[in-house]
Design a protein around this nucleic acid. Structure first.
Lengths: 354, 354
DNA sequence: CAAAGCCGGGAAAACGGTTGCCGTACCGTA
DNA sequence: TACGGTACGGCAACCGTTTTCCCGGCTTTG
């Protein structure tokens, strides 16, 4: 038990067990050659005193702290959360603790955090953020390995893990083609946004590979439901013929779904719909629920953490690593012969709660 | 600059400056009495070597680590994020770093984290989580102060900071009364959920104080849009007379708004609507945008951090501290003579992007 | 001129562990 | 009986800083 005042030290444990400090250390860490009975005596003493090794003191002479810093480029947000959870999960399993640093898109603040982390002698650093675009490296010649997760470093020699947005788009397009759609429109976010451009270009490419083109040029706008609704209005006003819409986000897709319903076009029968992000609150609340592309951000975070652990242990794998997306099929494309049952929710309208 | 191999130690700095280690320490920390010229010499040497004090070594003999642990009861989620951001912000300003620990609603995992944090000799611990209900204390007789943020400890002697959900509800009800509504319905989450009950009871109380009652008994269901839609169906089917709905969440409120519109009831003219949470993605995307109650979770997090800092510095303020909510007025209650201009967004329909 | 005080800086003891090296006692064997 | 080997456990250096105490020299004062 021990008292709650000062945590017990190994010296007190050693004294109680009647051995030297060094011996106590060996007993507690299962090193050296000691009589089993001695080990037991030390362990008992430690237990009685409520001894908990002082990680600070240990770090001082091993040189390893078993901590890593996680710096977000911008404010902690919807995209960085799952990445952080994945990172924390993978590192926690490796006995490492994570320092959380919210960069807030402020370079000064970021550098302050970087210095703090280095002063704390973290074993490594993860840099993440909301955007999937490139960013300037956080520092040069740092004494610890750095991995960029979701965002990537502008220096190709740095280790980055990014979602395979092109691959995700190919999944979306192929899925629409597979259910027999050929006149696909694309509604997405602002053109200056990296992800919007990448996904739009990938959609065009993949359709071309099938001998097709978009039903209309990519429609760039905002990452909002309102823009999704507005875009549908434009498509209808221009009498564009389309039987599917691939959207740059679930928010946009939901707006598209609402506007289509208001215009009397049935989803998915008249128009099939695919979103992006698999943001549950949008994808599931949409009417109908959205088929969408999931970037597996948590898995991406875990992958980044594993790369960091590797680098810490001397096996760096520099460069840009792409992490696969996956398609989550729901009712907004549930049509014709469906290849398999939807794994996430039963087909048919959702039952309202009592 | 120094090379990126091993970080420079104060010994090397001292050698380069031609002073003893102790003197170097004093120079770098602005202590003791030294000639200005000596200080400068040491500082130069430190700069040239890229010296960064080893926080681990420093902690070892000061006994303070300037770190705190933040443990989430359940998975990091929508409510814990703003709290965490607030905590991190307030603590960062106090030069403290934050260890992130995702408890995942797993008591084993939580205890593991607790032990890890204690081994790391954190100066304090913040416990947070998604639900605002009470939870069993994370430990007894801990050697460091603990503050519960958003959730609260079942032990009233522990320090907890919780949102003033009753107060928030009073703001909502008073607001509806102020715009002339008297037949208020209440649609909220599951009855077993602490927040749902608290808010429902507070609504009843506040109406009673005005000599009124709810237009129908509190409608408990789910925290979902679907339930909001369904509840409207029930109200209409039962021919309940109502000119306002106070909802337990913005998600529910959005569902209510959609169903009312579908039923030809205008918001806010026929029915005024107040949500809860001020979750931007719901409150702003709703048609019309929602008046709602904001729990100021970030501020709550900062308050918790400040209490923790106080406790660390010897001024504990045990007990349950309530943090005020505030009303954010938007178009779902924009009616009649409005007392003041809405501070957050101009009135009138939102313009769709080009 | 001597004593006292101050200023600048060095030496060394902590802080709490880990670990390599060494000594001792006991065993078996020649 | 003497010697070598092994098992067990102690000693002490070390990790990088901070901080206390002390000392020598210079300045001030009586």
């Amino acid at each position: 038990m021990g008292n709650p005042g000062r945590p017990a030290t190994i010296k007190e444990v050693a004294a109680l067990a009647g051995v030297s400090i060094g011996t106590a250390s060996k007993a507690l860490n299962a090193r050296g050659s000691l009589r089993p009975e001695t080990r037991a005596r030390v362990r008992d003493a430690a237990e009685r005193l409520g001894f908990r090794v002082n990680a600070v003191a240990r770090s001082l002479n091993t040189g390893r702290t078993y901590t890593v810093g996680m710096i977000t480029t911008d404010t902690i947000g919807r995209f960085s959360i799952p990445v952080m959870i994945g990172v924390e999960d993978a590192l926690g399993a490796g006995q490492m603790s994570v320092f959380l640093c919210d960069g807030r898109d402020d370079a000064i603040r970021e550098q302050y955090y970087l210095q703090t982390l280095l002063a704390r002698r973290v074993d490594g650093i993860i840099v993440t953020g909301r955007r999937s675009a490139e960013r300037r490296p956080i520092g040069a010649d740092l004494p610890v390995p750095v991995v960029y997760a979701f965002i990537s470093s502008a220096d190709p020699a740095d280790c980055s893990v990014v979602p395979d947005e092109e691959g995700g788009t190919r999944l979306a397009v192929d899925h629409l083609l597979a259910i027999g759609r050929a006149r696909v429109a694309h509604v997405t976010g602002p053109e200056h946004h990296h992800s919007a451009r990448v996904r739009a270009n990938a959609a065009v490419d993949q359709l071309r590979r099938a001998g097709l083109g978009l039903a209309a040029p990519p429609m760039y706008g905002e990452w909002s439901e309102a823009w999704g609704r507005h875009a549908v209005g434009m498509l209808l006003a221009n009498r564009v013929g389309f039987d599917a819409v691939y959207c740059g986000s679930d928010q946009i897709a939901r707006g598209v779904a609402d506007a289509l319903r208001a215009a009397g076009r049935a989803v998915p029968d008249d128009v099939a719909l695919v979103g992006f992000d698999n943001w549950d609150v949008m994808a599931l609340a949409s009417q109908p629920p959205l088929t969408t592309i999931d970037m597996d951000l948590e898995g991406l975070g875990r992958a980044a953490a594993d790369l960091l652990l590797g680098a810490i242990n001397g096996d760096p794998e520099p460069g840009r690593h792409v992490h696969p997306c996956r398609l989550v099929a729901r009712e907004s494309t549930a049509i014709q012969v469906r290849p398999a049952a939807d794994p996430l929710r039963p087909a048919g309208p959702a039952a309202d709660p009592a």
